[in-house]
Amino acid sequence: MNIARLRSKRVIVSTVAVVAALGIGGGVWATAAGADVGQAERDRAGTAAVQAVGGGTVVDVEGDDEDGAAFEVEVRKDDGTEVDVALDKNFAVLTQETDTPGTDEDPDGTGADGTDAGDRALTGAERTSAEQAAIAAVGAGSTVLSVEASDGTGDDAGVAYEADVRDSAGAEWDVALDASFKVLTKTEDR
């Protein structure tokens, strides 16, 4: 699988549809879906992948055309490991590949996308608070595309959360938040 391509774009999967399909109480998030993958397909692919790996959070969903696969789904399990699941057009699992920091797939422990191995999944409360703060910063009618924890070091000193937000006019913004969800910076992507 092309992991770099899999992690290239970020889009939110409809939490309500996935939660309803899985029958769980937490939010399930996805990123990365090309224009060739519709919302219903993203939801079904995410649900199938989460069930296949025994639970977790959908991180990426993307169309695929390698080795008979129709979809590639990345799932982050509660222990932090990430599993890449290839599905056919009927949402049947073709392969599962675990990316664990410090392994052959990720020998330097930085994560397949170059992120720190210390990156962690957000709790539902953290995600909700960060989303609310980011939407308030960008304005009504905006949509959160992704929210991540930040290590708060280097150029990100003091930053606890980073959100990508699309405003009502279609412009995308990077919003940096501190640990109390106070907006530190808001920068338009150009």
Results as ranks from 00 to 15, higher is better:
111 G>V: 10
91 F>L: 02
45 A>S: 04
104 D>Q: 12
44 R>N: 06
132 Q>K: 11
74 E>H: 00
186 K>N: 02
58 V>Q: 01
62 E>K: 03
37 V>M: 01
125 A>Y: 09
55 G>D: 00
41 E>M: 01
128 T>A: 13
39 Q>M: 05
173 W>L: 00
162 E>A: 07
183 V>L: 02
180 S>F: 00
48 A>H: 06
143 T>G: 02
36 D>Q: 01
121 A>S: 13
154 G>V: 09
179 A>E: 10
132 Q>D: 15
26 G>Q: 14
86 A>Y: 05
80 G>W: 00
176 A>G: 02
160 A>L: 08
78 D>F: 00
164 D>P: 04
190 R>E: 14
142 S>L: 06
45 A>V: 11
100 T>Q: 15
79 D>P: 02
37 V>H: 02
14 S>Y: 03
48 A>K: 04
169 A>D: 07
53 V>H: 08
103 T>E: 12
5 R>G: 12
15 T>A: 12
66 E>G: 05
182 K>Q: 11
166 R>I: 07
98 T>W: 07
181 F>W: 07
40 A>N: 05
139 G>R: 05
65 D>G: 12
60 D>V: 11
45 A>H: 03
78 D>V: 01
130 A>I: 06
147 V>T: 10
119 D>S: 08
92 A>I: 00
171 A>T: 02
69 A>L: 07
175 V>S: 05
186 K>F: 01
149 A>S: 15
26 G>W: 11
71 F>R: 03
177 L>I: 10
